[in-house]
Write a protein that binds this DNA or RNA. Structure first.
Length: 776
DNA sequence: CTTAGTAGGATTGAG
DNA sequence: TCCTACTAAG
């Protein structure tokens, strides 16, 4: 098994006990090392699988690990503890709720819920929202928890600090009352308990014999403390990561965690994986030439046995429209060469840059998919339905209740809401209970009181249905029906409302499949030893039924609604979303000062520039065969038009390994412009005024040789979530709609997704979202 | 209570 | 420029 590993990989896999840090460069087979190591520990060293804990950051990474492990060592992946920091902590917290001092039935609040709670606390404390921005408070609370600060550790000297402490305490109290934990709490609360309660620590640290942490460069301080505490008995801690790929400092990631691992654990063994299996030599040289300029990094250099490859291409264009035409040119050329469009990706620094690409692609009828942006579980309607369910699961969850108090509109206004809330806090009861008890003495009388009571009855009725064991999917449907949500959407009769309804039906569908997947699962008798300590399958409650709580937990910790890809589409995403992925062709756009690196000139903190440089490094190292970089002379961003200077990172590229079109860095690093570019009469017209530019581009960007065969070790999992446009509809085109049948497109209104006016025989014209249409 | 209008703000975003 | 989130009028 270890035979198909290279020497450092094998070294990491076979390392026995004690701390181990693996610096795993881009495309060096990192996941492979972790999975092989888990398999080796279980099979060769006979470590009980459930005594192995492997932690990742994303559900996707955890899923991938489990999947690969299933192939490598059947039975191990199912029993080992593999999950995200948050999921693992939530699981442990529920099991040891009493010891930790949380309710075992806690609800997990996402950022939006957290903000609602903050607003409520501010109102309670009679603080002005303008002066104390909920956004900033959320930031402050999150940071404090990341740093493992308790209320008494916070600075309280100044006026501002004093208020912060008060807010912190009030927030914690309100969360406790609601039986809720925010994302930060999941780690914070567990670490607090582990560090305070020696018996708990001994128990948990004793049970996990081996710890593996993926993407260790992305851990924050609280996560480091968690790893330390859980590893405190055996010290079998294996951390894997790459400081050069640390791009999340703004959300608390601390590269020092991996860089100083040896200081933390002086006996730590160090392994560096530097052989790359992904990219061509030229791409790696270009990437290295850039990252090498970072002072603060662990020295290492990727090398490969792959081809030399074609030189990366840097193209100067006039503006963002021109940049989009470069993309179209590239797509067209790839099509002519019979290349797979799925293997083309466009990277940008900010989401705002995607619009122009979308419009161009839509105009040219090229399918595309956007990763990121608004996520399924963040959509208002999805959150509404989930809020109903959360109230049924936890009647103390005031925030969720308030969310749906007047959704759909049932005549309960702001005034009533405020009075209800006040009545609840005055009597020290939940808002749910207050629904029943409020009366004229609280200022809720007449119609308002009736409506409030009716809402309480509605919840009671749904609650009863839930307690009688109504199946999950049924319960979802029941909520939609009885609350009048469905009716209200149907009555709106707009394409947006239809889209919302579709989303809700999808959610109900997911509840049904959750039930199917988890409902009938028997408890695993073999692992009883594991059971008594932490439980094996959190998705199933004592009766073996898929419970509402289990579903809600899954949903709160799950962010990507995976969707099977359909049709050939290119991919668009921010670079941040790209980590861990790879593509044959990568187009990195907007490489201009102030955009990428995104820092104001003159104010640039060197460490910020280094982080941006890592971002560029991540972008470049996603490419297997073809890397194209574009920068515009001028562009409109955030409504402001500006002239741009090529990114300093372009001047760091090795001139001998890179081709330049339209501009190339001079020896001094200053721009030497050549005025070249596409014509501009019609942004996406079929012909360009400057054929030579197109020719030059075509020559320079051509794929040097057919890409290697299909099987890629790190094939990426699809994670699209619905901002997709299949084949772009154009007037005259025949399209099919699920309900209305086949019709003809009369007009298209740009948007994401675009709205399409379709004439259906016998039904007249309808305006529909492109998402719900397919070519007929 | 809903709707329209506008002020303000805008990186990057896992769980 | 465009979107969100709150405020004033219907």
């Amino acid at each position: 098994m270890a035979s198909d590993l290279n020497p450092p990989q094998r070294e990491a896999v076979l390392h026995g006990g004690g701390p181990l840090v693996v610096f795993a460069g881009a495309g060096s087979g990192k996941t492979r090392v972790i999975t092989h190591r888990v398999a080796d520990l279980a099979l060769r060293r006979h470590v009980a699988p459930w005594r192995i804990l492997a932690v990742t950051f994303t559900n996707k990474a955890a899923g991938e690990m489990r999947e690969r492990l299933a192939r490598l060592a059947p039975g191990v992946g199912e029993r080992a503890w593999i999950g995200t920091f948050h999921a693992v902590c939530a699981r442990i917290l529920r099991i040891h709720a009493e010891r930790v001092g949380v309710r075992s039935s806690f609800t997990i609040y996402d950022d939006q819920d957290q903000r609602a709670m903050i607003k409520r606390v501010l109102r309670e404390l009679r603080l002005d929202e303008k002066q104390h921005r909920p956004k900033e408070i959320a930031q402050f609370l999150g940071e404090a928890k990341q740093k493992m600060q308790r209320a008494e550790d916070l600075p309280s000297s100044g006026y501002r600090e004093g208020i912060q402490v008060r807010i912190f305490e009030a927030y914690e109290a309100a969360m406790a009352r609601a039986g809720a934990l925010d994302f930060g709490d999941l780690i914070y609360r567990l670490v607090l308990a582990l560090e305070k309660d020696e018996r708990l620590r001994a128990e948990l640290a004793g049970r996990f014999e081996h710890l593996l942490v993926d993407e260790f460069q992305d851990t924050n301080h609280a996560q480091l403390r968690l790893v330390r505490a859980l590893g405190s008995v055996h010290r079998n801690i294996c951390v894997v990561g790459d400081d050069d790929q640390s791009i999340y400092r703004w959300r608390g990631a601390d590269r020092r965690n991996i860089l100083d691992f040896q200081r933390d654990f002086p006996d730590a063994h160090v392994v560096k994986l530097e052989q790359n299996y992904r990219s061509t030599q030229r791409i790696l040289r270009a990437a290295y030439a850039v990252i090498h300029n970072n002072i603060d990094r662990e020295p290492k250099q990727l090398w490969t046995e792959n081809d030399e490859g074609a030189p990366p291409l840097v193209v100067q264009v006039r503006d963002e429209w021109d940049e989009a035409r470069v993309l179209l040119e590239l797509v067209q050329q790839s099509r002519e060469d019979g290349l797979d469009l799925e293997q083309i990706v466009v990277f940008y620094r900010t989401h705002a840059q995607s619009r122009v690409f979308e419009e161009a692609l839509r105009g040219a009828g090229v399918g595309y998919r956007i990763i990121g942006g608004q996520r399924f579980y963040d959509r208002a309607e999805v959150k509404d339905l989930l809020a109903y369910l959360r109230v049924l699961d936890n009647p103390n969850d005031d925030i969720s209740l308030l969310r749906v108090l007047n959704v759909p509109a049932r005549g309960i206004g702001k005034t009533t809401e405020a009075r209800l809330l006040e009545a609840a806090s005055r009597r020290g009861i939940s808002v749910y209970e207050a629904l029943r008890e409020v009366g004229p003495e609280d200022g809720v009388k007449g119609k308002a009181r009736e409506r409030v009571r009716a809402f309480g009855k509605l919840l009671d009725e749904l609650s009863a249905a839930h307690e009688q064991g109504l199946a999950l999917g049924e319960l979802g449907t029941r909520v939609l029906e009885r609350s009048g949500y469905r009716l209200s959407l149907e009555q709106q009769d707009s394409p947006e409302a239809e889209a919302r309804l579709e989303n809700l039906l999808e959610l109900v569908g997911s509840m049904q499949s959750f039930e199917l997947a988890n409902g009938a699962l028997p408890l695993d008798a073999e692992d009883e030893e594991a059971e008594d300590l932490v439980g094996q399958e959190p998705l199933v409650d004592a009766t073996g039924e898929a419970s509402l709580s289990a579903y809600l937990e899954r949903v709160s910790l799950e962010t990507q609604a995976d969707e099977a890809p359909e049709g050939e589409r290119i991919t668009l995403m921010t670079i941040h979303a790209a980590k861990g992925l790879e593509f044959d062709t990568v187009l990195v756009t907007g490489m201009e000062e102030e955009l990428f690196p995104m820092a104001r000139p003159g104010f640039a903190d060197p460490s910020e520039i280094e982080e941006e440089r890592r971002l560029a490094y991540v972008a470049f190292t996603r490419a297997r065969r073809r890397l194209i970089i574009s920068h515009a002379r001028e562009r409109r961003l955030f409504g402001r038009h500006r002239y741009s200077v090529p990114s300093r990172f372009l001047s760091e590229l090795p001139p001998d390994d890179v081709s330049f079109i339209g501009w190339q860095p001079s020896a001094s690093g200053l721009a030497r412009p050549r005025r070249r570019g596409f014509g501009h009469d019609d942004p996406f017209g079929p012909d360009t005024d400057d054929d030579s530019f197109a020719d030059e581009f075509a020559r320079a960007s051509a794929m040097p040789s057919p890409p290697p065969g299909s099987a890629h070790d790190d094939a990426w999992l699809d994670a699209s979530d619905g901002c997709d446009v299949d084949d772009a509809p154009r007037p005259g085109m025949q399209v099919r709609h699920r309900k209305f049948g086949v019709g003809q497109v009369r007009g298209v209104e740009p948007g994401s997704p675009p709205k399409v006016r379709v004439r259906f025989p016998g039904r007249g014209e309808k305006v529909l979202l492109a998402t719900f249409l397919e070519p007929a």
